[in-house]
Write a protein that binds this DNA or RNA. Structure first.
Length: 730
RNA sequence: GCCCGAGUGGCGGAAUCUGGUAGACGCACGGGACUUAAAAUCCCGAGUCCCGAAAGGGACGUGCCGGUUCGAUCCCGGCCUCGGGCACCA
């Protein structure tokens, strides 16, 4: 018998699959469709173990449903715009397009060598004009519907690299590349109005029963809906009024001051002239702080202005305070020190009065002696006609009272902000807009798409958008034919990945981003598999796009992913040499540093990452043990949702297991070849008699058929139990 | 601080949804077979403690405390620990 030789077996079958088009998608027939999708990779250079795990899980699902007779859509592609390509260009002098192309070729071969059941005919790459022209098309549709707009807003600015950074590229207030403190800078930016869909995005989480609860929780928290009341506090001696939002209308009687965000427009208007200098100084100082520093102690300055509590007619001072955020709610808050922790801290610091209006049942606290705000439920006190009510009743009562008098109205506020998609980078999808001297902001006509990203661009990593310095910027206004300047920012790459699952349903579509009929056939994705790190951003954006695309009339689904599986990370202990720092596994063979021979310190088991050098190259494992062992181990070693601890011994165990299967089949090859397909009855031997079963003789059932007994029955039972178990698990 | 999730042998983990022989499978470990020897492979053993020369037998065991039940790793309540997410959100 031949030895188990994974390489020759795998290459032979991979060749046969490819030759037969075994994984080419069929049009769904009577058995129904199944769309299984794994999050497509960024083509960074090589496949890593996280990819192997992700795609092995997906392959199991795909093959399972293929074997059940479903028509399966199982595509793969490349999230191929992004900053690493630009960094490679700057560091190695290779063009981002070429670097990306080479990486895709290499990684595609790696995936093929792993034997995954992808329909490569449907491959997409987001950096291809045939793909990103539809990004631009969707952008124009969004623009028409008012879902895309431009406004001035703050961005993370790194003075060291003189470039804008994404939020993910700011680590602890510092630039991820050069460690410069990140500054806030105001720039004109394009936004997508995701907040229009806040309520629906929240509401629909109820129906996503196939999603992990924690992902839904994270999305709900991110959307952050608050129900409350918007109330106006007129400014004393002025026609202005301060609009505040509160979720605690029951505590309005306890307001002892009002706080404004330092950049609230009213600050300038109402501050007393003699305090103006101090207030401006404070605002400037607070606003120049970065995210991390701003978490410092609560601080504020008195504006010299007073406003009037609409319920009590009391005059209360107005402060500018560092903990009030302009871009949440109305940028102004009423302060109730007795019942809000932040206001309490602030009031104690500046000796402001504390007024109790909700009393615990065991007695009203003394404001002077309180150590902390009382934030729980209780009975209303010092609140006029509402005294004696429970505060939960008063909440509703006061809200209605204010509405009747026209002093306020019930309202809802979300934490979710609109999605800023402008990136001052080269390697991304151009935003299809020009600025005409005469006509202003003009969208490109649909028939002029795509706006092609030019190839001859000088990349230095300095300055604003690289596209601003090349002929690309000069355009003709599509409306008046006059001179115009092209938009030089590109789109956030999350835009690319917000609809790629729709493109897979008809990757050749020439007239629309995707074919409506095909999308109707295949969507939604029945099982979506990827890392938990995308729990909020990508998955929320994709949900938003699906709803917006529905409202454009292109699709009739509201949610893209029926079931979501978030797989755990692949982890391994790190190795550290006292002299040479982190070591790759092969540099620490035998527990000593290969360079200096010092004993290696074994670190904690953590996510595989290049910086800790605790990585395993899938190629090496495939070369040594074969793709099947690599895949088997990454499935077997831990449940899909949980982290997987890498273990070379475990890999060997998987390899031995496959060796045993190979021998078991090989040694019984003759018997297996002779066996007839199983028809549910005991085997008939060559002479036409019923074969002997484990315990001697076959038994007869009531209808005269031969029943299965003993050993045979056990085998059949185990077979069926296994089928049931596998079906349930998958 | 708030919100999720998880705690089972030396290790990764089964069983938990649907309460009914806890510890499947794998790793590591020990013993044996094969071999001149080794590798590879195969077989056997093993939760912990106690009694016994052995065959066997007994007690205790799923983070801790309590509840429901004939019966709880599983259901309920309270705590502890670890992991993750969010965090001045008014």
């Amino acid at each position: 018998m031949e030895k188990y030789d994974p390489k020759s077996i795998e290459l032979r079958w991979q060749g046969i699959w490819e030759g037969d088009g075994a994984f080419t998608t069929r049009d769904p027939g009577g058995n129904g469709k199944y769309y299984v999708l794994e999050m497509f990779p960024y083509p960074s250079g090589k496949i890593h173990m996280g990819h192997v795990r992700n795609y092995s899980i997906g392959d199991v699902v795909a093959r399972f449903f293929m074997m059940k007779g479903k028509d399966v859509l199982h595509p793969m592609g490349w999230d191929s715009f992004g900053l690493p390509a630009e960094n490679a260009a700057i560091q190695h002098g290779i063009h981002p397009a070429e670097w990306t192309r080479q990486n895709i070729v290499f990684m595609r071969n790696q995936l093929k060598r792993l034997g995954f059941s992808y329909d490569w005919k449907r491959e997409v790459a987001t950096c291809a004009p045939e793909y990103y022209r539809w990004n631009q098309w969707l952008f124009l549709k969004f623009f028409e519907k008012g879902l895309a707009y431009k406004k001035r807003s703050s961005v993370n600015w790194c003075p060291g690299c003189s470039t804008v950074l994404a939020n993910e590229q700011v680590e602890g207030g510092l630039c991820w590349r050069c460690d410069s403190p990140v500054e806030e800078k105001k720039l004109d930016q394009w936004f997508l109005r995701i907040t229009d869909y806040a309520e629906e995005l929240l509401e629909c989480t109820q129906g996503l029963t196939g999603w992990p609860e924690r992902v839904l929780t994270m999305q709900r928290n991110w959307i952050g809906k608050s129900v409350g009341v918007e109330v106006s506090f007129p400014v004393a001696g002025s026609i202005e009024a301060i609009r505040i939002f509160t979720t605690r209308p029951d505590t309005i009687f306890g307001v002892t001051f009002v706080s404004l965000a330092p950049d609230h427009p009213l600050v300038e208007k109402i501050t007393a002239p003699q305090r103006l200098e101090e207030v401006r100084e404070f605002s400037l100082r607070v606003l120049s702080m970065t995210g991390r520093e701003a978490e410092a102690e609560k601080e504020g300055v008195f504006t010299g202005a007073y406003c009037v509590n609409p319920l009590t007619s009391e005059k209360v001072p107005v402060y500018a305070a560092n903990f009030v955020l302009m871009d949440y709610g109305t940028g102004a808050v009423m302060a109730v020190p007795a019942h809000d922790g932040r206001d309490f801290e602030f009031a104690r610091k500046y000796n402001l009065p504390v007024k109790v209006v909700v009393s615990p049942l065991d007695g009203e606290p003394d404001p002077a002696a309180m150590q902390a705000a009382y934030v729980d439920d209780g009975v209303m006190v010092n609140s006029g006609q509402f005294d004696g009510m429970s505060n939960t009743e008063a909440m509703e009562g006061i809200a209605e009272f204010l509405e009747r008098r026209g002093l306020g109205k019930k309202g809802v506020t979300y934490r979710l902000r609109d999605w800023g998609i402008s990136r001052q980078r080269y390697w991304g999808c151009p935003i299809p807009v020009v600025y005409c001297e005469g006509c202003g902001t003009v969208p490109m006509p649909y028939e002029d798409l795509p706006v092609i990203l030019p190839e001859d661009v000088l990349l230095t990593g300095k300055g604003l958008s690289p596209l601003a310095n090349c002929p690309f910027v000069n355009a003709k206004c599509p409306r008046c034919g006059g001179k115009a300047r092209r938009e030089t920012d590109t789109m956030d790459t999350f835009v690319d990945s917000s609809w790629y699952f729709l493109r897979y349903t008809s990757p050749e579509s020439k007239d629309l981003p995707f074919d409506k009929k095909e999308a109707k056939v295949w969507m939604p994705v029945d099982r979506y598999i990827g890392g938990i790190e995308h729990a909020v951003m990508h998955l929320l954006y994709a949900r938003f796009f699906t709803k917006a695309i529905r409202d454009i009339g292109l699709a009739d689904i509201s949610e893209p992913f029926a079931n979501l599986l978030t797989q755990g990370m692949v982890c391994k202990e790190s190795m550290k040499c006292p002299e040479h720092g982190y070591l790759f596994p092969e540099e620490a063979a035998g527990g000593v540093c290969r360079q200096c021979g010092k004993a290696v310190e074994v670190g904690a088991v953590e996510k595989m990452s290049k910086s800790r050098k605790n990585i395993i190259d899938p190629d090496r494992i495939i070369e040594t043990y074969g793709a099947d062992t690599t895949r088997l181990f990454s499935l077997f070693a831990a449940p899909p949702e949980k982290d997987l601890d890498w273990s070379e011994e475990g890999v060997e165990g998987s390899y031995r297991f496959l060796g045993r299967v190979w021998r078991l089949v090989g040694e019984n090859m003759e018997a297996l070849k002779a066996a007839a397909p199983y028809d549910g009855y005991p085997a008939i031997t060559g002479d036409g008699k019923v074969a002997m079963t484990g315990d001697g003789y076959p038994a007869m059932t009531g209808d005269g058929k031969v029943a299965m007994t003993g050993f045979l029955r056990d085998i059949r039972r185990i077979t069926h139990m296994t089928i049931r178990k596998v079906t349930q698990d998958i």
